[in-house]
Design a protein around this nucleic acid. Sequence first.
RNA 1: CGCGGGGUGGAGCAGUUGGUAGCUCGUCGGGCUCAUAACCCGGAGGUCAGGUGGUUCAAGUCCCCUCCCCGCAA
Length: 314
Amino acid sequence: MMKVLFMGTPDFARVILDGIVGAAYPVVGVVTQPDKPKGRGNVLTPPPVKVYAEEHGIAVLQPQTLRTEEFENELKKLDPDVIVVAAYGKILPKNVLDYPKYGCINVHGSLLPRYRGAAPIQRAMIEGEKTTGITTMFMEEGLDTGDMIEMYEIAIREDDNFETLHDKLADLGAYAIVSTLGALEKGNIKRHKQDDSKSTYAKKIEKEDCLIHFDAPAKRVNDLIRGTSPFPLSYAFLGGRMIKIVKARIDASPCKGKPGEVTSLEGGLIHVACQEGGIAIETLVPEGKGRMSAKDFINGRKINVGDVFTSEKA
RNA sequence: CGCGGGGUGGAGCAGUUGGUAGCUCGUCGGGCUCAUAACCCGGAGGUCAGGUGGUUCAAGUCCCCUCCCCGCAA
């Protein structure tokens, strides 16, 4: 079977790697981002792919950059027949792209050419798409622009959030890469050019992307909330304090109010008016506190009907 | 030693210038109602994270130490 070199970093990549290992392909090594300080106290934390690789006795490389002679030498030593890339986080230089006999295959979490880039899963959900999917493709120097091999579509359900969709896509991605590798080995590949005119770019989710503006339709507000949950979480301000919203739903029969105004606390939910319609907050994280249900938050007497969520701290 | 918040009955919180604890919810029992995550009455439940530390006539409330939890930033 083809010798595989895997490049990836987060959980999404870990699941893909697990699929490849599960299909019994010899994984000659894993390239992942260097350990980074994380969390309280800035503890140095290894990326999920590294943890997985170590558990499975796979060699791990964590180069700061791939553009070195040193890495090229490593590449020759490992001598992969194919390189599989999933959410690695670095651009591959031409000499790496050209090395493997079967090429470099990328597993991307969207239906290309839409949502090229860093955060396809979140962006698709935030933009209110009804479907998304997985695309496998040959890599070239452009960002997610290479010829597509296989594509799998999946529905974005109303009760999905980033986490559930991410997990489904990761599983689907694992399935897709195994299928693609199998076809590649048999020479059963069809290349499909991307229609660049239809491409969109899913840029990384920044903090300011997570700020909730209640002067938007309820669906849009809710799509942002679920598309960023449970990470990094969308937020707004109430009484000068940041409130992150973990889970909400579109209010069936919202009372009218100004955007951001709390219209009711019925049912242990915080009902907030949007530009059109409203949402009912079910779970949230107050500044300096942990996650709690809206009911608990209300019981702590921290909110009243008429209070207003704003987009600015003051 | 990145910044900050916090550990009080099952949950979320309050607790004033220190004088042995209160609110909302839940829970148990009873009542009311056509009915209700509604209302009324009553009850149970807390060594106030730990150090059997220090200050004090007196500490949840001030000082010191330890443990744990959480948010932010990266």
